[in-house]
């Protein structure tokens, strides 16, 4: 297990390096240069800016400096918001996105496992039909439609009640988080439900469940001890990628619900071509996602004895 953990961490570090390099290459193949816009008005200002952002150095040196500063955890200074460190921006806005994301993943995982198990147990009966219909909707409807509908519904509910049950937009309290997180987790929940259902169905028909029945175990015990634990395994493996989908999917929800998360800043930075913010945020997100995937892998190893023991 230790060896496995170390190996995963090492792989993760290499992956983060690859992401950083890919970002660097991508950003340096942008036609023109970051200072070609109206900001650099005179050659003197331009030279100053180049000096400040290190753009006058050879590309390889820039790369070394770039990787070096990332290693120190320094993502540089914003191009558009002078004197604002990218680190500050991340520190300020990432916790918002992360809170939203974690809440959404929790919704998705718990809801998906619950509904998936239900549909498998009530296969081809009414609860299954209803849930699977909703699942198909959840998979087919884009997140921004859910976000818009969620907000619309909230506005109407608040109007109907005559007071604000939950805030329609903004951030700060738990009330602000519930609907956005639900909306954000919706499609993943649908996905997990489907996965859980098929995984449960496969296990229900497996040889070892037949053995458990032949042992005369009560249905409840078969469900908790034998079916659920094994059916959850494939769900755990998709949680890592799901975290990635949810965190980046958060951009839309942040836009619709006016949540001051990092995603909204990233979109803003892209629109303003704020290079350091774009690079810093991408690499930071990349590192975050890689870390989450590794954590999920380790969690899987902890649950599945076949990985744990070897």
């Amino acid at each position: 297990m230790w060896q496995y953990t170390l190996k995963r961490i090492f792989q993760g570090i290499i992956t983060i390096w690859f992401i950083a390099t890919a970002t660097f290459v991508a950003m340096h193949s942008v036609p023109g240069d970051p200072l070609s816009s109206e900001r650099a008005t005179t050659p003197a200002i331009r030279a100053n800016l180049e000096e400040r952002y290190g753009l006058n150095k050879p590309i390889l040196e820039q790369y070394v400096l770039y990787i070096g500063s990332f290693l120190k955890g320094d993502f540089g200074i914003s191009f558009t918001q002078r004197n604002r460190q990218v680190n500050d921006i991340i520190r300020e806005h990432f916790p918002v996105s992360a809170t939203l994301g974690i809440l959404a993943v929790t919704f998705a995982a718990l809801g998906g496992v619950l509904f998936g198990a239900l549909t498998a147990l009530y296969r081809n009966r009414l609860p299954d039909t209803i849930i699977m219909f909703l699942v198909i909707l959840g998979i087919s409807v884009p997140s921004f439609v859910f976000a818009a509908l969620g907000q619309l519904l909230l506005v109407n509910i608040n109007n109907l009640l005559g007071f604000s049950l939950l805030p329609v937009a903004g951030w700060g309290t738990v009330g602000h988080m519930l609907i956005p997180a639900l909306v954000l987790g919706m499609s993943t929940m649908a996905y997990v439900t489907r996965l859980m259902r098929s995984s449960m169905l496969e296990i229900i028909h497996s040889d070892y469940i037949r053995t458990a029945k032949a042992k005369g175990l009560p249905a409840a015990r078969i469900f908790t001890r034998h079916e659920l634990r094994n059916a959850i395994l494939p769900v755990v493996t998709v949680l890592g990628p799901a975290i990635a989908t949810i965190t980046t999917g958060g951009f839309v929800v942040e836009l619709v619900f006016a949540i001051p998360g990092l995603g909204r800043f990233f979109v803003q930075a892209v629109q303003q071509l704020d290079y350091t913010v774009i690079m810093g945020t991408t690499v930071f997100y990349g590192a975050f996602l890689v870390t989450m995937v590794i954590l999920v892998d380790l969690l899987y190893g902890w649950i599945d004895p076949r990985v744990r023991v070897q």
Binding site: F18, T248, Y285, G286
Partner: peptide
């Protein structure tokens, strides 16, 4: 695969 898809 590890590249954050939508960001890229």
């Amino acid at each position: 695969v590890a590249l954050p898809f939508l960001l890229f």
